[in-house]
């Protein structure tokens, strides 16, 4: 992993609470990010087009278009990392947020250091792999950052790309959810397995023929996941 400071990275802060939004920009700018603030859900897409952020920090509860809908709309046009801010800390809300495309979430209240760590983790790319990987009909090209399945291009978010790359670069190796959190999300959430579960589901929907009966990424019950070449299995 690289340790360069993302001096010029842009963070779009979407929060209806003016004080919190301002406080977020103070902390983020203190860490060298460039920020832009958006207070309502309706204005997000315009701000997104104009500001072209590297990360979006999105409150779950917004007046107008709510956080979930905003997240869905951003996902339609971009794979930009989205970190959801949730006030509830309720599992259901978190899973809903991840389902519509958020890469990660933060539960209020959070520490400044945690906020920064999560944003940096989303900006940090995994060490680029040198060579293309071909695996069970899937071709992953790290240089071009593209994935094809049986010749058809598959659109993955950067996070899904990293998750897939991590699994198929070591075929048959079983990765526990904890290890995946560390390798792909870049930091340790103690016991936070729903992040992995939700994204694994989304990844399977994109690359598997039948996401209910996955043939490429197998679940090893009670342990984690492994990539198996369907042709060799």
């Amino acid at each position: 992993m690289s340790h360069r400071r993302p001096k010029n990275d842009r963070v779009l802060v979407v929060d209806d609470d003016a004080s919190l939004a301002e406080m977020l920009t103070i902390v983020l700018e203190g860490e060298g990010f460039r920020t832009s603030v958006c207070h309502t859900g309706d204005a997000v897409m315009a701000a997104f087009e104009e500001f072209k952020p590297d990360v979006v920090l999105l409150d779950r509860m917004l007046p107008g278009l709510d956080g979930m809908e905003v997240c869905r709309r951003i996902r339609e046009v971009s794979g930009v990392p989205i970190v959801m801010l949730t006030a509830k800390g309720e599992t259901r809300d978190i899973v809903d947020g991840l389902d519509v495309g958020a890469d990660d979430y933060l539960t209020k209240p959070f520490r400044n250091s945690e906020l920064i760590a999560r944003i940096r983790a989303r900006l940090r790319r995994s060490d680029p792999l040198d060579t293309r990987i071909e695996f069970g009909g899937i071709v992953l090209d790290p240089q071009a950052h593209t994935v094809t399945r049986d010749g058809r291009p598959v659109s993955l978010t950067p996070l899904e790309f990293d998750l897939l790359a991590c699994l198929i670069s070591a075929p048959a190796q079983v990765f526990s959810r904890e290890v995946l959190l560390q390798k792909v999300w870049g930091y340790h959430h103690p016991g936070d397995t729903k992040l992995v579960n939700v994204h694994m589901t989304r990844l399977r929907q994109k690359i598997e023929d039948d996401a209910e009966n996955p043939s490429v990424i197998r679940t090893v019950r009670g342990v984690g996941y492994q990539a198996i070449d369907p042709a060799s299995a």
Binding site: L20, M23, V27, M61, A87, K108, P109
Partner: peptide
């Protein structure tokens, strides 16, 4: 309560940390 209290608390905490 959770939502209403946590948002200002987050701001206070962030400011306190600064």
């Amino acid at each position: 309560v959770s939502h209403e209290l946590r948002t200002p608390l987050t701001t206070v905490q962030m400011a306190g940390q600064v």
